[in-house]
Structures are given as C-alpha cells and as structure tokens.
Amino acid sequence: MTRVETGAPPAAAPASAAALLRERARWSLFDLLFWAAALAAFFVFPLRLPLLTEIAILGLFALSIDLLLGYAGIVSLGHAAFFGAGAYAAGILAQHGWGEPISGLAAAGLVAAALGFATSFLVLRGSDLTRLMVTLGVAMMVLEAANKAAWLTGGADGLNGVVMDPVFGVFEFDLFGHTAYWYALAVLFLCFLAIRRIVNAPFGLVLRGIQGNALRMSAVGAPVNRHLVAVYTLAAGFAGIAGGLLAQTTQFVSLDVLNFQRSAEGLLVLIIGGSGVLYGGLVGAVAFKLMQEWLSNITTQYWQFWLGAALVLLVLFARGGLLGLARRFLRRRPARSERGGAA
C-alpha cells in the first residue's frame, strides 16, 4: 500500500526534518523556464502584447482563486466581486486625476481586500452550499450596486476617461502595449512571489490543513474562522490587484469585470492548469487564452459553449488540470514536491 519512493536518490539520507521541508520550497528549473519564457514572449510576439498582458492579468486572478480554492478549499462563485472592486477602484482614482499607477494599484488591492474582509464573515457560515449562495449573492449585489451607482461607475456605459501617468514617472503607457506588458508582468511576478511565500510559510500549511480537515484543525487549536477570514481577505486583495491592472492597462472599466462569467472563467482557468499548485492559474491562463484565440478564429459568437464544454470535459477526464497531467507523465520526482516550490 505504501508507495515506495525510489526516484529521489537516498544519497543525502537520513535528511533532517527541516531539510525535507526545505526541499519542497526550493526554486526549480521549471520556475526559471516559466519566467524566462514570459520575458522572451515580449521579443518573440511583439505584436501580441495586449494578449500577453491579458494572460498575465488573468493568471493573477486565477492565482488569487488558487489561494482560496486550491489551498484553503473554499469554493467561490463570486470572486469577480473583488476583481471588479479593484478595477473600479483603480479606474475611478485615475479618472479623478490620480493617475500614478503603483499607488493606484495598491488602492485597488486595499479596496478589494476591505470588501473581502467585510464579506468574509458571511462566507464563514455554513456548508459548501451556503458558501456558493453567499459568494454568488455578494458578487451579484456588488454588480447591481455598480450598475445603480452610474454617477460613480458610469453604469452600463462603463468607466471612461481613465488616464494613467507613466510608471515611475518614466515609462508612458504606449499604444503598442510595451509598458503595459512589462508593468503587468512585473506586478504578476511580485504577487506570485508574495503568494509563494505565503504558501511556504506556516500559514500555507494552515490553509492546506483547513482544506484537508477543518474538524481536525479545530482540534489542534486552530482558530479556523480567523484563518478563513485572513485567506479570504488576502485572496480578495490579490484579485483586486488583478482588476486594477486591467483597468490601468486598458484604461477602461465596464460592468463585466463583475459578472458571473468572470468568476466562472477564473475557476475554469485554474482547473485547466490545476488547482492547489502555484503555477496552476498561470499555466491555465496561457492555455485558456490560446484556446480562446484559436476558437474565436473559428467561431466568435458561441465561445461560451466551448467554455462550458471545456469545464465538463475537464471535470470528467482531467481533474488535475494540465499540470496534473504533466505530473503523471513525469513521475520522476516525488509527486508532492510541486506543492510549494516548483510547478
């Protein structure tokens, strides 16, 4: 029954406990390759920079869902609420003359985190089903509020007149999207580092513990609710930063940053890549956008059908996502080592 690990050479054995833990948290070749590819993409696809920027934003959004779903096991149908809150926060700030991007982005993250904190108390209550209802309900409420508050958000017409200052006062947002891509990629990378740190810290263990067995968590003295509030707030904050990025790089915000499709898309992206794995959201975002590009060449209008079909098929046949599939093929290293560090 016990699987014998033969892959890792027992050269350094017996390893100390700390060394075993550290092994999980190491940077690997995959990390290097992934980010090198992200940098290289700028030079290889100079004409597709807007698409690449979208991928980075979507990846960050999915990464924030991963923190919540993949690590803590909370199913949310309304994560778009935080994405949208961040987008509107950054957009409205810039529209009112505060065009400095980095502080704008920080504000987006804070606004979304505040909204996440405020609504987290509802999410704590009850079962999976209650959570589905509450997360969906909160998101719809925020959407309705944004729709009604047209004086602030522009309502159904969207938020126009977003003008950004140069990044660091130097790099203008240009028509080709050069600055936008570097900016989005840098923000994505920094957020990735932060989330990587979180999941490798004791709190990451806490999150996986809650997903694994909340009853046992409380029996080892964990204030489960307080931990859940913390992770919900964090995930909301990162989603807000992703939303803020979208507002700043496209200089426009419309109501569909808040809609259900956005939440579902985030989930789908994560499931494509593989949840509970740091790169799941990022790999998923790449695959998703490429698929969307490819499909929209064939059929633009009924894209949603394929999105649905993808969800159905993934659940039936490839629950671990792309990284799960890859892992099955590359069973060289212990399967778990991807948790904290690589992939």
Binding site: A17, A18, A19, L20, L21, R22, R24, A25, R197, I198, N200, A201, P202, F203, G204, L205, V206, R208, G209, G212, V220, G221, A222, R226, H227, A230, L234, R336
Partner: peptide, 26 residues
C-alpha cells in the same frame, strides 16, 4: 499533508506561529 507537516501544523498552532505569512516553514 505528510505526517511531518501534520505534526508541524499542530506545533505552529500551539506556539502561535500559524498565522505567519512570511517566514518559510522550513
């Protein structure tokens, strides 16, 4: 979780270190 991680988790909770977001567990 591995047994090591499970026990470590209990220790972190006991010592009030569980909410630490920054210091790597190792």
């Amino acid at each position: 979780l591995t047994p090591l991680e499970s026990v470590l988790l209990a220790i972190f909770e006991r010592d009030g270190k569980a909410a630490n977001l920054r210091r790597p567990a190792w």
